[in-house]
């Protein structure tokens, strides 16, 4: 048998190739099982980029349904909380041109807001609790409610249902810890007199007396 193969190179090559095909086939089959990707990866990736405010301004009940819709070819410019940054990120992910935000769905707000319940006016109707998509409101029937500010996504959904209008959307104040330097104006666009008194410029060219 061995001799026969050794003497017949074509047969030897054939056996080797078939053997390799079987081995790699098995390997690929195993890998496909072992590293199976659950769900639709592109939906996951788009969902990762959406702001998860869950506000429904895009016309879908939450960010994930919108991600699914984008994966099925919907426009990518319907999410006002994410704004241009999100549109750009999705555009670069899907390799499509980035459109402007669709004003129909709302405007991008420059400041983050969170809901605040004026507690002494709250009648304890639990309507806002039912509206909150992330369970950020604490309360019970006929008892005062309050918003857990850290959990609130600022989606605005609890404001409308409140029968006594005691929920305000307040901007989150900038603190020392999240203050940041701003990107300077583009070089070549400054006039000398503009720079005077510009606080944000720490480095002072020089030391040169």
């Amino acid at each position: 048998m061995i001799e026969l193969i050794a003497q017949n190179p074509i047969l030897a090559a054939l056996i080797a190739l078939v053997g390799l095909a079987i081995i790699f086939g098995a390997l690929l089959g195993f890998a496909a099982e072992k590293f199976k990707v659950e769900g639709n990866p592109i939906v996951e990736q788009i969902d990762e980029l959406l702001p998860q405010t869950q506000c429904g301004q895009c016309g879908f009940p939450g960010c994930r349904p919108y991600a699914e819709s984008i994966a099925n070819g919907d426009a990518i410019n319907k999410c006002p909380p994410g704004g241009q940054a999100t549109i750009n990120a999705i555009a670069s992910l899907l390799d499509v041109p980035a459109p402007e935000l669709d004003e129909e769905h709302g405007q991008e707000s420059p400041v983050r807001t969170v809901a605040y319940i004026r507690e002494d006016e709250c009648i304890g109707c639990t309507k806002c609790i039912q509206a909150c998509p992330v369970d950020a409101i604490l309360g019970a029937a006929k008892l005062m409610h309050t918003v857990i500010a850290d959990e609130c996504t600022g989606c605005d959904l609890c404001v409308e249902p409140c029968p006594v209008d005691c929920i305000d959307m307040l901007p989150v104040a900038e603190t020392l810890t999240d203050w940041s330097w701003s990107i300077p104006k583009k070089p070549g666009q400054l006039i000398a007199t503009d720079t005077r008194g510009e606080l944000s410029h720490a480095h002072t060219q020089g030391g040169g007396a």
Partner: peptide, 10 residues
């Protein structure tokens, strides 16, 4: 000693 920042150039 430390003059005002010169305008930035490209």
């Amino acid at each position: 000693e430390i003059p005002d920042d010169e305008p930035a150039q490209p």
